[in-house]
Design a protein around this nucleic acid. Structure first.
Lengths: 151, 151
DNA sequence: GCTTACGATAAGCGCATGCGTATCATGGGT
DNA sequence: ACCCATGATACGCATGCGCTTATCGTAAGC
């Protein structure tokens, strides 16, 4: 059962993390569907949570989407009143993106439902592993891709 | 900078893990290219490491590939002498897949290079977080997708 | 022997995605 | 005024992938 092990006895990180990520995404999909959100739309809501984003291109880069693909996503979110696209008075080429109150409520509801599921999963872990896991994950998540790739 | 946080103060697991997985895969690609391997081919070598696999369909399922897509991958690996496809004497419809010695050497070389990079990354973490991270990751990696999705 | 089931392979369809390019509006520098 | 860079948008192309179907060989039960 324990395949792909090295002398130190662990599989490649990617070999463990990528399938785990797939499963976590699969776990989110039903929740998102209940709220009528697609994954890209949810990613946008998450990214816009804290502060507005000045340009759509920057938003696309941040969430790892193609800049030509989020246009339709933003159209849908704006149409449903979840985000605002306002021309930046200082640079009218740019559209400042921000959450509406409804958008924030949507984000809170969905994220709360998702994290509730995740807590059930984490509850399987011993307390100290769980804390180390979350600490390490948050540390690694703040690294830039180039720092992970190997500088 | 710390966006997408809940009252407990962490982003969604998937929101951290998926980009991390992408970055780890990106880090592997140059190593794989040096050895002339594609990601699917490397996945096959990893899966075959410990024991032979009885059918190609089972292999495809295990590594998350479509069963019709790995045919070409196996063709290439067999042509390069890295794997063997032997008819199962007990059921000649099946092709028992196994690593050749050359395949095992290739796997060891590539995995060692990859894990060497990963160790550099893990070295950034405090010792206890690192241990908890690896423990938790290995525990979660052995769960079936349905157990992660929420049973 | 005949039928049914399983496995490998090939070929085609469709979706999601990334990329390049063109267009138009705008801003900033010369 | 003029030129070039930037931003949003739309369009077309190519790719990679999953899914489905069809064909063929083989195994196993009747």
């Amino acid at each position: 059962m324990a395949g792909n092990t090295t002398p130190e006895g662990r599989p490649d990180l990617a070999a463990m993390i990528v399938p785990l990520g797939r499963a976590l995404v699969a776990a989110e999909l039903p929740v998102l569907r209940e709220h009528g959100l697609a994954m890209w739309a949810y990613s946008v809501l998450l990214r816009l949570d804290d502060e507005p984003v000045r340009t759509q291109a920057a938003l696309a880069r941040d969430i790892g989407a193609d800049k030509t693909r989020i246009i339709g996503v933003l159209d849908g979110l704006e149409e449903r009143g979840l985000i605002r696209r306002q021309s930046d008075p200082a640079d009218r080429r740019a559209r400042v993106l921000s959450l509406t109150p409804a958008g924030r409520r949507m984000r809170d509801a969905v994220q709360s439902a998702i994290q509730q599921r995740e807590e059930q999963l984490l509850a399987r872990l011993p307390e100290e592993d769980r804390r180390g896991f979350l600490n390490a994950l948050q540390a690694l998540a703040t690294l830039s891709p180039s720092e992970i790739t190997g500088d």
